[in-house]
Amino acid sequence: MIKQVLILLAVFYLLALLQTSFFVDFRIWGVVPNFILISALLINVFEKPQKNTGMLAGFIGGFFLDIFSSNPIGFYALILLALSFLIKIIFRKYVWLPAS
């Protein structure tokens, strides 16, 4: 669990740095994709529905988005946590995946 948290912290910190410096120069139709949001959502979608890493990823990713934006700390963290939670509910209750 601690190892997981440390990896997510490192990955999302790096992504937040890239999001506010490197990726700014790569606009797609005038918009810079939010790679933290995309990564957090992808983790939630592709991990096993029983696991909670995606929610942790959403929370940590949101925290770093808050740090590098003018929002109060916790704004994006709670939004991404809630989004992750929603995805979990949908996947656990309404999506049946074939057993591998």
Binding site: L17, S21, D25, I67, F68, I73, G74
Partner: peptide
């Protein structure tokens, strides 16, 4: 995380201090 808002300037400043050189390089 929410209680960090009481020290928002200090917390953000702390992250910016060691992130700034990396951000400039990435930029």
């Amino acid at each position: 995380v929410l209680s960090l808002n009481f020290f928002q300037k200090e917390v953000k400043g702390f992250f910016y201090v060691f992130s700034a050189p990396i951000q400039i390089t990435f930029g």
